[in-house]
Write a protein that binds this DNA or RNA. Structure first.
Length: 826
DNA sequence: TTATGGCGATTTTTT
DNA sequence: ATCGCCATAA
């Protein structure tokens, strides 16, 4: 009997053999509250997957004294499996399990949709179709699902609309205007920020009003909050924050509903716990209150969203809040080289109030961290592009490179340099597809079809294209709606009955009739959402409106087509007959850019450091490492913000697997102004032993050595950059990239992924086929930025060719043949 | 009601 | 540098 228990433990150790001791401990610890402090790259996703797999396959078996009686044959099989000779059969598994948990009773909450998708994918790879039964989603998507089902308890319909920040802004603008509040004294974003903070901490408009001081400005905010909520309600709409706090409200006011969800889920897991806010904490506590099985994973050092309401206290106090909590630290990093990790550790060590954690790695030390200084941002950007081409020339993939910056505004110069070098890249953040005017308008049409009471959407499109229904008319109609407490759409439907609307009533009725007809179509069976979308573009004249603008707005027409593809894609991915327009709108409203990140596409990646959280790249560039850029100017004098900034730096550094290249510039053009910045203070914290500093700056004769040397503190204006003519030669080793295998557990090699016993084998890289080359050595070519030149060398690479071209004016450049827009010159 | 031009203010991060 | 607001003119 006792030996059976030991054998079972041995077998389980084998099944989860690919993990280290601490990780396995987390996997086997299934009962009660568990805090996993997972350092960057410590394989926390792997732990989550395995922990769920353990719950489903073995339940509480590892620490349980119970075991079924085994026959001799079964014991023989167990013995064989325990010594790694064979894999356990399903029969044996079910015999060994103690209280296994059906997948559908597990809830996993992640930070992004992409993370949730990945989790699902890997669970299916591990558990088969049953993996799909795990509820995995973001807080927002999970709450949205609950509210669609249960919203009626709170007076919302099942097809309520989700307002995004732009919708909220429009609505608030209207409110401020109607209340005669000058936007200069009380900006929209200030009001919305206050409201958002209130919602994060679960304060209703009444709570807020009650807690308010006599500050007249905050009194106004309080009024606006109340009106804002009322207007949302009238529009059958919720904003992002509502999704969370309305769910909490639902659970606290309707215990019987809460109980249903508590009973449904036996095990809860929350990823990125350091980025949760108070409302999210409450939600999780409520859901886990029955089972008590709450596992949160997070890293206090990677908390970078406090600025938008995340409270690090959630993680710092977890052990106090949840009695009997067990804490497990994952400190072995599988991602980065030793030097990169050393740098990260030293940077983060400067922060106070940490849980305390030092990452270590068994990975090779790796190359030193390059720190390169330039005269200006353009030089910096050009060098980065050149460096990428150099490495691609010796076998690197474009997708191996990421450029991570503090603010989106920094992307422009990098983009220019990449375009000039013909390097394909993808950029995340900044203007997104769903944020373009035309896509938002088209979406607004669809929203009005699904939910006519959505006043923000209605006002957005009613005169787009021009229908002669202007502001005056709309203001009157909105006034009437408010007076009678009915939806704007309702007033417009009966426009002819109001004296005030006589003049425009024919036009209004035409518009309403058109929308009603489209809505009828929507309800017909066998009509797919994209059919309705297409017809909408047609009959509303919206697409025509852009087409008439000609070539200049061609991209907008393209985006409208693209939206149709997105709808079709949604239809394809939905279950037969389950694709509804409302469903698409919901998915789209909770979609973010990073969700679309495709690690396989072979291009360089540009994104903010925030957006890069959770991702990793072989080579990472961190441009703009200057005080005032990173750390950003508005954080430099506030200690709390400075700490968050430092954590962001830690996150950025730990994205790199093999190489980290940090750059800065003596002077930089940003927001239309040229600034001279000192090198980032974070650089001081990186030990000299792991960094290789290089100056690529030109002489400034009027400066002497006396000005050189950077001591701490501000020296007003001119930072100390004294260099002799010619600068210092580059010193970095230009040989090939390190060739060791990367041990990343977050992305195991495909071959190793499903095999249960260790011996991961990396499949050999397929040879890259030679591509036909449009350019020959000796050709004369013309480039629209660099002018004329002669092709000096052409080496095939992937399905493209790397050209070295000697330009007449500016010397030699390396360009990718497919992407550089070259013309032949006779 | 719509189109245009000039002006001023605004630049962190985003589910 | 870019965006959004406002006033003015058509």
């Amino acid at each position: 009997m006792n030996t059976d228990l030991i054998l079972r433990q041995q077998l389980m150790q084998r099944v989860f053999a690919r993990m280290n001791d601490r990780q396995r401990e987390a996997v086997f610890c299934v009962d009660g509250p568990l805090l996993i402090l997972a350092g960057a790259g410590s394989g926390k996703t792997t732990v989550l997957i395995n922990r769920i797999a353990n719950l489903v396959q073995f339940g509480r078996a590892y620490h349980s004294p119970e075991i079924a009686d085994l026959t001799e044959a079964q014991r023989a099989e167990l013995q064989a499996c325990a010594s790694g000779l064979q894999m356990p059969s399903p029969e044996l598994l079910s015999l060994l399990a103690v209280d296994p948990c059906p997948a559908w009773r597990i809830l996993a909450i992640t930070f992004t949709n992409k993370a949730a998708g990945e989790l699902k994918e890997r669970l299916v790879a591990r558990l088969g179709p049953e993996g799909n039964d795990v509820t995995a989603g973001t807080f927002h998507s999970f709450c949205a699902r609950i509210l669609r089902r249960e919203g009626e308890y709170l007076g919302y319909s099942s097809h309520f609309t989700i307002y995004d920040t732009d919708d909220s802004r429009r609505l608030m603008k209207e409110i401020l205007k109607s209340r005669g509040i000058d936007e200069k004294t009380l900006p929209v974003k200030t009001v919305l920020g206050e409201i958002s903070r209130a919602k994060d901490s679960l304060m209703s408009p009444d709570d807020y009003a009650a807690a308010m001081s006599v500050d007249p400005r905050l009194r106004k905010v309080s009024d606006c909050y109340a009106i804002y909520q009322a207007r949302l309600k009238e529009a059958d709409a919720m904003d992002f924050d509502d999704l969370l706090c309305k769910t909490v409200e639902l659970f606290t006011t309707h215990p019987e509903v809460l109980q249903r969800y508590q009973n449904r889920y036996d095990y809860l897991m929350v990823d990125e716990y350091q980025d949760t806010n108070h409302a999210q904490y409450r939600l999780v506590s409520l859901l886990a209150a029955r089972s008590g099985n709450l596992c949160v994973v997070g890293d206090d050092d990677q908390s970078i969203y406090q600025f938008r309401g995340a409270t690090i206290e959630n993680i710092l106090n977890f052990e106090d809040e949840f009695a009997g909590c067990k804490t497990i630290r994952l400190e072995q990093n599988y991602r980065s080289t030793g030097r990169i990790l050393t740098a990260a550790n030293h940077v983060i060590a400067q922060n106070k109030g940490r849980k305390g954690k030092t990452l270590w790695t068994a990975n090779p030390e790796g190359e030193k961290i390059d720190i390169v200084t330039f005269d200006n941002g353009d030089e910096e950007a050009r060098w980065i592009a050149g460096r990428i081409l150099d490495k691609v020339a010796v076998g690197a993939h474009l997708r191996d490179f990421a450029v991570l910056y503090r603010a989106n505004a920094q992307s422009a110069s990098i983009e220019t340099a990449l375009v000039r070098s013909g390097i394909p890249y993808r950029i995340f953040g900044g203007h997104r597809f769903y944020d373009t005017q035309e896509v938002r308008d088209a979406m607004a049409y669809l929203r009005v079809l699904c939910n006519p009471t959505d006043a923000v959407a209605l006002r957005r499109i009613i005169n787009q294209p021009r229908r002669g229904i202007g502001d005056t008319t709309l203001e009157r109609a909105a006034g009437l709606a408010e007076q009678q407490d009915i939806p704007l759409y309702e007033v417009l439907s009966h426009a002819d009955e109001y004296a005030d609307l006589q003049r425009a009533s024919a036009k209004i009725k035409g518009f309403i009739a058109m929308m009603d007809a489209l809505r009828d179509k929507l309800e017909q069976p066998d009509v797919l959402p994209h059919d309705v979308y297409r017809e909408m573009l047609e009959v509303t004249g919206y697409q025509k409106m852009w087409e008439l603008q000609g070539e200049a707005e061609a991209e907008r027409v393209q985006n409208l087509q693209e939206l149709e593809s997105a709808i079709r894609k949604y239809e394809d991915e939905s279950d037969e007959g389950a694709a509804s327009l409302a469903g698409f709108l919901e998915e789209a409203s909770l979609m973010t850019d990073v969700d679309n990140y495709d690690a396989d596409a072979d291009t360089v990646v540009l994104m903010t450091m925030h957006a890069a959280k959770g991702l990793e790249f072989p080579t990472v560039f961190l441009p703009g490492m200057e005080d005032g850029v990173f750390p950003s100017l508005q954080t430099m004098f506030e200690p709390d913000k400075m700490e968050e900034e430092r954590r962001l730096c830690y996150v950025a550094i730990t994205r790199a697997r093999e190489r980290l290249i940090i750059t800065n510039a003596v002077s930089r053009l940003m927001y239309g102004q040229t600034n001279r910045n000192r090198p980032s203070r974070f650089l001081n914290d990186i030990p000299p032993a792991v960094k290789a500093e290089t100056k690529k700056t030109t002489a400034r004769p009027f400066m002497t050595e006396a000005f050189g040397g950077n001591r701490g503190g501000f020296d007003g204006g001119f930072g100390g950059y004294g260099h002799r003519s010619g600068g210092v030669r580059t010193s970095y080793d230009d040989s090939r990239m390190p060739d060791y295998e990367s041990y990343s557990q977050e992305t195991p090699p495909a071959a190793a992924r499903s095999s249960w016993a260790a011996t991961p084998a990396t499949p050999p890289k397929p040879a890259t086929p030679a591509a036909p080359c449009a350019w020959q050595v000796g050709d004369r070519v013309k480039h629209n930025a660099f002018g004329s030149g002669t092709v000096k060398a052409a080496s095939p690479m992937g399905n493209d060719v790397l050209l070295t071209i000697a330009f007449d004016k500016i010397g030699e450049k390396k360009l990718m043949g497919k992407f550089a827009r070259l013309e032949k010159e006779s």
